[in-house]
Amino acid sequence: MRKSVYIAALFGLAYLLVQTPELFEQAPDSAPQASSTEQVSEAYAQQQSKVQVRGQGVVIKLLPDDTKGSRHQKFILRLSDGHTLLVAHNIDLAPRINDLRVKDYVGFMGEYEWNPQGGVLHWTHHDPAGRHPGGWLSHNGKTYQ
């Protein structure tokens, strides 16, 4: 009887992890902020750039790395309100997310730059010079900064 309870608990935890991975995402501590949907949607509507945003989204498309100049891993996230966001993650300054797949959840902190297609998220890494707020990406419980 005890063994079946443990097995049922393990399956329950596994189900939660697969269905709601955002509950298990770990990211660096920082002050509470508005949701990603509110921040990004507001910055997009007002055509703002250089806005520090934090949130999460689901990967809907993986793009080839940009290898001109500083190398960037690129992919598109869909936020909870349907807004899409291009992520340009500098892999010269932060580790690449090698196991990233479509439908994965990714947490983020970085700088939003407006464009007509929905905007770009960059500065998802530390600033070696210490002049810019550090950003990060989180995926499957690991933080990339």
Rank of each mutant, 00 (worst) to 15 (best):
M1R: 13
M1G: 11
K3P: 00
S4G: 03
S4T: 13
V5T: 00
V5F: 05
Y6I: 11
A9Q: 03
F11H: 09
Y15L: 12
L16N: 00
P21K: 01
F24N: 06
Q26W: 10
Q26S: 08
A27Y: 15
S30V: 06
A31H: 13
A31P: 03
P32L: 00
A34T: 07
S35A: 06
T37I: 11
V40P: 01
V40C: 01
Y44K: 10
Y44I: 03
Q52N: 13
V53M: 00
R54H: 11
Q56T: 03
V59T: 09
L62P: 05
P64E: 13
K68C: 03
G69K: 04
G69F: 03
L77R: 08
R78H: 07
S80P: 08
G82P: 10
T84N: 12
T84L: 08
L85I: 14
L86H: 13
N90K: 06
I91F: 05
D92V: 12
L93P: 10
P95V: 06
N98R: 15
L100N: 10
Y105G: 11
V106I: 09
F108T: 04
F108Y: 15
M109N: 15
G110C: 07
P116R: 08
G119H: 10
G119C: 11
V120Q: 08
L121Q: 08
H122P: 06
W123A: 12
W123E: 11
T124E: 01
T124G: 02
P128C: 12
P128H: 01
P133Y: 10
W136K: 01
L137P: 07
S138T: 07
S138R: 08
K142L: 04
Y144V: 06
